[in-house]
Design a protein around this nucleic acid. Structure first.
Length: 340
DNA sequence: AAGAGGTCCAACCGCTCCGCA
DNA sequence: TTGCGGAGCGGTTGGACCTCT
């Protein structure tokens, strides 16, 4: 594009706005409306380009702008909308009254993006990260936390959290292994896929042996349902390649342990319902099931309800055909999806 | 107390989109 | 249909402020 920037003209001021400039701009717009942004600066007596005036107004001076920290609810909305819309900041902002696209973008870049990365999720796809080169150190650090579990000075709660973090790391690695084999065609399915599958199975075995995972150890989830079509909330673990190519008699899943935090039900229409009963659902430290939130999920159908939006302990969701996903922060009615 | 490094956010830049002639 | 200009969007920057050592 050969067009010269609008602010290149000599003499036009750039940089931070002074209170006097703000006052002039607000006064003019309140009296006349902004009309043509290009013409506005001259009419308002400002030595700025129209673009600069528009930005100042829309991002800072507009009377309906909500300032201050983002609420938990707003944060969830942003995460949710970003998983659907991506970096469409203006579209996201249109669903958050009083917030500007610039503000949301900044909040994303400084807080939410880092938060997702720290939790092992790709901030762009909202799925567990598979670029192990970059995430492996983090995963190993998490996994190594289990070494600390024998330290007598750490309290029980901390140990529990660490165990969950280690388990999360293992599950993420498992997801990576399964994804790596799923990309292979039938023709190219070879020894490397088998190796990955065996590694995945070893990982599964180790996880089931230590009875750490409330999902794997859930009594409602026997082998048949675990590997059946439409396992709600555990899609990364359901993998046709692995299951068809390898049947390891060593792999078994305990059914003797109580299902600590979740229940999985299936109705006659093959719809699944996940009832979360843990106190910590919605708290980032409780992500016991690292299943991916879909980057785009237009095929999601069914209903979702939240009897008490502020109370994470009563969230219920139901989707059809086993295409459901489990994304604890984001289990609420989605007008965007349904209206799309 | 001071300096280094990190964080936050307003503002800028370059590009695309869209309406109009 | 095409070219132009205005408006808007998303990425990036720079400086003020904060935190840590």
């Amino acid at each position: 594009m050969g067009r010269s920037p609008c602010c290149d003209e000599n003499g036009l001021k750039k940089g931070p706005w002074t209170p006097e400039e703000d006052e002039k701009l607000v006064h003019y717009i309140q009296k006349h409306g902004h009309g043509s942004w290009r013409a506005l600066p001259k009419l308002a007596g400002l030595n700025r380009c129209g673009k600069s005036c528009r930005l100042r107004w829309t991002n800072y001076l507009r009377p309906d702008i909500k300032r201050g920290k983002f609420s938990q609810e707003e944060e969830q909305t942003i995460l949710h909308l970003h998983s659907i819309l991506g970096n469409k900041w203006s579209a996201i902002a249109s669903h958050l009254p009083g917030r500007t696209d610039n503000e949301i973008k900044n909040f994303w870049n400084t807080h939410l993006k880092k938060k997702l990365i720290q939790m092992g999720f790709d901030p762009m796809t909202h799925q567990p990260r598979t670029d192990l080169v970059s995430s492996l150190p983090y995963l190993l650090a998490l996994a190594n936390m289990t070494d600390l579990m024998h330290h007598p000075s750490l309290d029980e709660q901390a140990l529990k959290l660490q165990a969950e973090a280690a388990q999360l790391a293992k599950l993420e690695y498992l997801h990576y292994l399964l994804q790596s084999t799923s990309s292979l065609t039938t023709d190219s399915y070879d020894q490397s896929a088998n190796i990955a599958n065996m590694e995945a199975l070893n990982l599964l075995t180790s996880m089931s042996n230590v009875n750490e995972n409330p999902v794997i150890n859930c009594p409602q989830m026997d082998n048949a349902s675990f590997f059946s079509n439409g396992i709600a909330g555990s899609q990364p673990l359901h993998h046709p390649n692995m299951l068809s190519q390898v049947s390891d008699p060593q792999v078994s899943f305990s059914t003797s342990q109580p299902c600590l935090n979740s229940e999985k039900n299936q109705d006659t229409n093959n719809n699944f319902t996940m009832v979360s009963e843990g106190d910590n659902i919605g708290n980032e430290s409780s992500w016991m099931i690292p299943s991916p939130a879909p980057s785009v999920h237009p095929t999601v159908t069914g209903t979702s309800s939240n009897s008490n939006p502020g109370d994470a302990s009563s969230r219920t969701s139901s989707y059809g055909g086993g295409t459901s996903f489990y994304w604890p922060e984001l289990f609420f009615d989605d007008p965007i999806i349904h209206n799309a």
